[in-house]
Design a protein around this nucleic acid. Structure first.
Lengths: 338, 338
DNA sequence: TTGAAAGCGCTAACAA
DNA sequence: TTGTTAGCGCTTTCAA
């Protein structure tokens, strides 16, 4: 079927070794031979069998990414952009990207183990860290190269890129307080996620600093989807007095919350303030445009991938633990309290 | 490093052949031996080296997906859901998914060739077909198993799943005509995409049937993003008289168009009707909720993957060319003409 | 029921 | 500068 190095050897009358080395551009092959081998290889439409190369070199030149999907409607623009960042970077270094989808839970670690022990990947990228993350425990123990988007509670010494969610939320709360908001509600992410911890910490700290407290009744937890934001916002909007501002901990939930408010005839940005986090493209084009905290998600994907690639090439990454300072993006979904 | 079949052989005192066969559950291995081998394998934490298995079996058990990304802000919820459908299905059959990102153009075919000839994948899934699609020409000529989401103009005999965009748009136009709309505008997709062809065909046919015509000034082309929808909608809204309805050919552009209208103080669904296509989760939670045509994208991903898997297993797929009938989803972004 | 041996396509140490 | 040989980890004839 496929043309192999053997076919080229036969055709050129050289040994397979010579062919292999000619193709790899070794110094100890005569220019004439190189020339010949290359021409014939070209003519025959030769492409090296990567599997064989990899088996021999014991390097897969593949990095693994296991996407934590929940349910079938996994339509998170956040992840597709992250994927683009990772994928493009990997490709630019000649690496392949092996993507698995796997809901968090029992079988999750098994999937990681399989990819690693099965020699399918040289390293892994971990995303959406949990407060205490077994995936990271496993990868450390198994001594597998990996890089992470996000931190964990134990502050272990592994390479990661993260965004300073605490700082981002502080900016956000300060912004709202400046606008005169006092009765501030929050739609939090599932608390086992590490980014939830930082974002909530930022909110609590900043509110305290402003002499406020996040009241229990004003704190609800959403599932990060638009639907979740919608549902939780309804609960908050039922309260009386109503909160004057709702901080949703990601844009998707904020967008859902905006719908809930608008359905009740409220004008977002005037009657109620709603804010997000992430700055997905949709945020800019929402109506009204969403006040949020920018997270350079494509760049983060690219950086994490770069980091892993550096580790795989045996170098120490220039920066091993990066925490990006986010920017507050003020748009029209936040306004002065009525 | 990793435990190999050889280690198990040494430990059990059996030959590597026997170990291999015991693990593969061959009939001609004694129960006692099987038992022993399995226990030891377990104890030693053995995981088969997939690369070696694959090289030997000359099957990669991997399917390739090459995502046509444009620019860095590739945040299309459509693709992440498709990916989930493909990924979950592949995983359920023990197949891996190799994802590459590659902008359409020169290097695109090279990427396909590499994956195929390099023996990295057993088959490929092609998405977002063009009217005349070189990727499909190549895969046919190279005799590589593949399955496609979308059709092409040449109506070649390859396996695909597609949605009847023509029919979907007919439903949409009828709906608008019923609501009294006559001055209907359209934000079309880039015309080289095949789904653009079908959707536009549906629009033209249905309008003709209603005794209308899509006027040149009411037809603009967008880039499928929200920003693109926004920009093109601005052009349409500048016209006078303004169109009473705008059909955006995908939801993302419709969402952008809604923002543009709302920015001008128009109430969508009352002052102007805006519709989409795809029914991404966001459509339901937009404000107002978006009238659109439902496309079961997760299911399509799953079906295409299934189809490819059946081909790879040597079966003829039950259905080789599937065209799904879409449903019109009427929500509040469409209303009677003022 | 088991094992020896060949080979998947490739690379690399070594010898010529 | 080139070729011989071994081997990556596995599966699978074939013979015992």
């Amino acid at each position: 079927m496929a043309v192999t190095i053997k076919d080229i050897a036969r055709r050129t009358g050289k040994s397979i070794t010579t062919v292999s080395r000619a193709l790899a551009d070794y110094d100890d092959v005569s220019p004439a031979t190189k020339e010949l081998v290359r021409r014939v290889a070209d003519e025959m439409g030769y492409t090296p069998n990567r599997l064989a190369q990899r088996l021999q070199k014991r390097r897969t030149e593949t990095i693994g990414l296991i996407l934590p999907t929940f349910g079938p409607r996994f339509a998170d623009p956040f992840f597709s952009e992250l994927l683009a960042g990772i994928g493009n970077t990997a490709a630019s270094y000649g690496y392949d990207l092996l993507v698995s989808t796997q809901a968090p839970g029992e079988k999750e670690l098994e999937t990681y183990r399989q990819k690693v022990q099965g020699g399918q990947v040289d390293g892994l990228i971990v995303v959406r860290t949990r407060r205490h993350d077994k995936r990271i425990d496993y990868l450390r123990k198994a001594d597998v190269p990996f890089a992470v988007f996000g931190r964990t509670e134990d502050a272990l010494d592994y390479p990661f890129v993260d965004e300073d969610g605490e700082y981002g939320m502080q900016l956000m709360v300060e912004h709202l307080v400046d606008l005169g908001h006092r009765r501030i509600a929050c739609i939090a992410p599932p608390p086992h996620l590490m980014f939830a911890h930082y974002r909530m910490l930022g909110i609590h700290k900043a509110m305290e600093k402003a002499g406020l407290a996040l009241q229990d009744e004003l704190l609800v937890v959403g599932d990060l989807t638009q639907r979740g934001g919608y549902q939780q916002a309804e609960r908050l909007l039922d309260l009386s007095p109503r909160p004057s501002a709702i901080i949703a901990c990601n844009d998707l939930m904020a967008l859902g919350a905006m719908s809930a408010a608008q359905k009740r005839g409220l004008v977002v940005g005037r009657d109620i303030t709603i804010t997000g986090f992430d700055d997905i493209p949709m945020a800019e084009h929402a109506h009204p445009p969403l006040t949020t905290v920018h997270q350079p998600i494509y760049k983060i994907g690219s950086m994490v991938c770069d980091m892993l690639l550096q580790i795989l090439s045996g170098q120490e990454p220039e920066e091993r633990q990066v925490i990006l300072k986010p920017k507050l993006i003020v748009r029209q979904s936040s306004g002065a309290v009525a």
